[in-house]
Simulated scan of single mutants.
Amino acid sequence: MHLILSSYESVVNGLTVDLEDWYHICGVEDYSDPLQWGSYENRIIKNTDKILDLFRSYNIKATFFVLGYIALKEPDLIKTIKDEGHEIATHGFYHRRVFEMTEREFEEDVGKSVSTISSITGSRVFGFRAPEWSIRKETPWALKILRKLGILYDSSMVPLTRMGSRDFPRYPCKFDTDYGEIWEFPLTTVRLFWERLPFTGGLPLRMFPYFYILSKIQRINWEGYPAIVYIHPWEFDMEQPHIDLPFSRKFMHYFNIKATPKKVEGLLRHLRFAPVSEVIRLHA
């Protein structure tokens, strides 16, 4: 069953933050090793404060997909985010891609994150997003394990050939698992020739012209569907340390990050947003 709305005016889009620090990059030697993380400069608090200030100015709430590692390290930050009315979901514990783990490792990683976050907030964790949108066709067990752990919605699928699968849903919908139904809120994409491209966060948000991004989200809303926007605290940090990455990864991570705050503010000004669980509650 897909989530579809009756009119453009009633559409509320999902606003999300992947709460991770500047060195949380998958697949990069040393920087993907949690044993090294304690030696890196902590920039998560001041960068998250910039995002919270922006959300306050527009009185908008979002879903923060929190790394369990960050929650354990900075519990007061997580309490502040929750106290300001934002939803706290999980981004896993160690920022590991799903397809790099066994079923048991995945369950342990997400379970540890859920337990850590819940102990800080005193509330259940209902949502999950995998690092790098890394649920694949080869990991059909992921949704089952998430539902087993009490997760009610996931936001990890991409309807693309290389990142995910063309068979993945384009819009929010439900999946059945052995432990009950779970919502999937996939990455928002737009068709370009024979493929679909993301454009609502990360490099695409920083690269595409603002009018293009806004118009495409509005078109999706006119069709009756919500979009999902995602940002990272390090995209609000022009002075972060730079990691020596392969060219393609360096371009993806650093290109035009100075554009992120302005573009996000424009979207907050022109569109309606809410946390993911609220979008599902309003329109399911």
Rank of each mutant, 00 (worst) to 15 (best):
284 A>S: 11
51 I>A: 05
202 G>E: 01
138 E>R: 08
133 W>C: 07
139 T>R: 12
72 L>G: 11
96 R>P: 00
45 I>V: 15
111 G>P: 02
78 I>Q: 00
249 R>Y: 04
50 K>V: 03
185 F>D: 10
45 I>T: 05
70 I>R: 06
96 R>L: 12
276 V>H: 05
268 L>M: 07
55 F>E: 06
11 V>T: 13
30 D>H: 11
242 H>K: 14
47 N>M: 11
181 E>L: 14
283 H>A: 15
167 D>I: 03
66 V>Q: 01
39 S>G: 06
53 D>H: 12
10 S>A: 10
227 A>C: 02
105 E>N: 13
222 W>T: 06
20 E>A: 08
238 M>D: 11
116 T>S: 12
2 H>M: 15
133 W>S: 04
245 L>Q: 04
8 Y>D: 04
228 I>H: 02
123 S>N: 12
175 F>P: 10
12 V>D: 00
110 V>W: 03
201 G>N: 02
147 R>F: 11
278 E>N: 06
20 E>C: 05
247 F>Y: 04
8 Y>W: 06
118 S>D: 09
224 G>N: 02
124 R>D: 15
226 P>V: 06
69 Y>R: 03
262 K>T: 03
161 T>Q: 10
205 L>R: 11
114 V>Y: 10
191 R>S: 15
224 G>D: 01
89 A>V: 01
213 I>W: 01
99 F>Y: 11
268 L>H: 02
223 E>Y: 04
237 D>K: 04
65 F>S: 00
1 M>D: 13
105 E>H: 09
199 F>I: 05
124 R>N: 15
27 G>K: 08
152 L>K: 12
29 E>H: 08
237 D>A: 14
19 L>A: 09
133 W>Q: 02
64 F>V: 07
245 L>A: 10
271 L>Q: 00
45 I>D: 01
165 S>N: 08
23 Y>W: 14
188 T>G: 01
139 T>S: 15
5 L>N: 13
192 L>N: 03
163 M>C: 07
226 P>R: 01
34 P>L: 14
61 K>I: 08
81 I>V: 08
121 T>W: 09
16 T>C: 10
203 L>W: 12
182 I>Y: 07
264 V>N: 05
93 F>S: 08
104 R>N: 11
62 A>Q: 02
197 L>C: 06
98 V>M: 13
241 P>Q: 07
14 G>D: 02
264 V>D: 04
275 P>W: 07
252 M>V: 04
239 E>C: 05
32 S>K: 00
32 S>M: 06
2 H>I: 14
259 A>L: 13
155 S>Y: 00
56 R>F: 15
153 Y>M: 12
278 E>L: 11
18 D>F: 00
128 F>W: 08
129 R>H: 05
228 I>E: 09
256 N>Q: 03
135 I>E: 14
269 R>T: 10
224 G>Q: 01
72 L>C: 04
229 V>N: 07
208 F>D: 03
31 Y>E: 02
45 I>W: 03
10 S>W: 00
22 W>S: 05
184 E>F: 14
156 S>C: 07
271 L>A: 02
27 G>I: 10
229 V>E: 05
241 P>M: 15
223 E>W: 04
103 E>S: 15
141 W>C: 15
200 T>L: 09
96 R>N: 10
140 P>F: 10
132 E>W: 06
51 I>R: 01
266 G>M: 03
272 R>V: 03
124 R>I: 09
135 I>R: 12
220 I>R: 10
8 Y>R: 07
136 R>G: 05
32 S>Y: 00
268 L>S: 03
134 S>F: 07
